[in-house]
Design a protein around this nucleic acid. Structure first.
Lengths: 234, 234
DNA sequence: GGGCTCGAAATTGTATACATTTAGTACACA
DNA sequence: TGTGTACTAAATGTATACAATTTCGAGCCC
């Protein structure tokens, strides 16, 4: 993949991280990446520092870069923090959104429905990411957006598997999420911020249920042996 | 100032920005800075990208770096956002603080009172910054801390002049702020998160009053001419 | 066999030369 | 006098060579 510009390289790496093509916690070798993108190490290092600043990766002196990890502690914090930020962002977006931003939001939603119809899980997750990032732009609040962007990174990585519906019920949940997007678009366009808060919290409830089901899968059938084993485990 | 390590250079630039020795919006020349810190342009550029990632400066392609500006629109957003984030951070800090972090917090408060006693406005503002940054570390929430850190940058830059007390009344306000710090330390150490929220909101009210007095100085004497002029202004 | 030291290979960090882009100025022309 | 254009100087962006650090394995001692 030779001769990509720095911006293209940046967004490509973001996509690879959001889609977990680059797994959380995995090492990034700057020499390899530089060759891959057809540039020298100097601009590649600059891209890596940008990614680090935005929370996609972490770097440590003399020890290279890693994709930001998603340990159990961080996820607890994620579930604790997301609804507050999402709701506030939605409220501010309803107050401050502009016309071109509304267009961008509808575009993102269009891409979302198209990806769900095609059963393309990865494209669905990324379109969802873009949808919520646009709402962030609308809020016009650099302080909260710094939080939001970091939340969305982990949200998108966590959601990766839910957009691959395993049964009719899961398929229905995705349709429901899409309907909530439409309702949110209407509320934001009408500048009804109280409604936007309410809708974004409903939307969060749906996401959280799906994500928690993945994080903590349905309990296994109980039997005496496994229980005894577990009782003495750490 | 030759032969400073990259970390020293980074924190020195942060201090110069927080103290407004480098004015908001002013241009940064990477060649000059590199010479000043006794390093080549490559690591200097890396430092600048780190600062950009943390919100201290902004960079634009082929056009260099600027210290983050503080326009009137951003400040409106600042006043809107700060109390929510400060209160949530204080609450989380009370829940999650560790022993060493408590020591660091008390150190910062010690530096704060020492600086006020010495009437050193700049040292006071920076010690106040450190105090609140430590509470951020305690909260152990990377999402919210991203917001907090950006708020604190502007908070410290705005506060710069208030710690230069012009009269007995202003001197008393600084003493009051210091007392609130002490109360907050006690609440966090006792893990009383509801109290910590309340105290941090009180502390914010005090700061906001001081800052707004600077941003919007006491109203000028009303006269008919200026009123008429203003009525037709944008 | 376990753990240590030493050294070579690989990886990251820095300096510098060179390419590219921007900004400022002089000058021509209307 | 104002405007547009070409040129020059200064700044940013990139590539590459070299220095410093870390990692990993071989060899050794206990």
């Amino acid at each position: 993949m030779p001769r990509l510009s720095k911006d293209q390289c940046l967004s490509d790496l973001k996509l690879r991280i959001l889609s977990t093509a680059l797994a959380p916690g995995s090492d990034l070798d700057e020499t390899t990446l530089a060759e891959h993108y057809g540039m020298s190490r100097t601009p590649m290092r600059e891209v890596l520092h940008r990614l680090a600043g935005a929370g996609f990766i972490t770097t440590s002196e003399n020890r290279g870069a890693k994709v930001a990890s998603m340990d159990i502690g961080t996820m607890r914090t994620f579930f604790q923090t997301a609804p507050m930020i999402y709701a506030n962002i939605a409220s501010l977006a309803a107050e401050a959104r502009t016309g071109p931003q509304m267009d961008a939001l509808k575009d993102a939603q269009h891409a979302f429905t198209k990806a769900t119809a095609a059963q393309d899980a990865q494209a669905t997750a990324l379109a969802n990411h873009r949808f919520h990032a646009v709402i962030g732009e609308m809020a016009h609040n650099p302080y909260l957006v710094a939080s939001l962007d970091r939340l969305l990174i982990d949200h998108t990585r966590l959601s990766q598997r839910f957009y691959q519906p395993a049964n009719a019920n899961e398929k229905m949940l995705i349709v429901k999420a899409s309907d909530q997007h439409d309702a949110l678009i209407t509320a934001i366009e009408a500048q009804e911020s109280a409604l936007a808060i309410d809708l974004s919290l409903q939307h969060w409830d749906l996401s959280r249920d799906r994500m928690e089901r993945y994080v903590r899968p349905d309990p296994l059938p109980v039997d005496v042996v496994s229980l005894k084993d577990r009782r003495n485990a750490v």
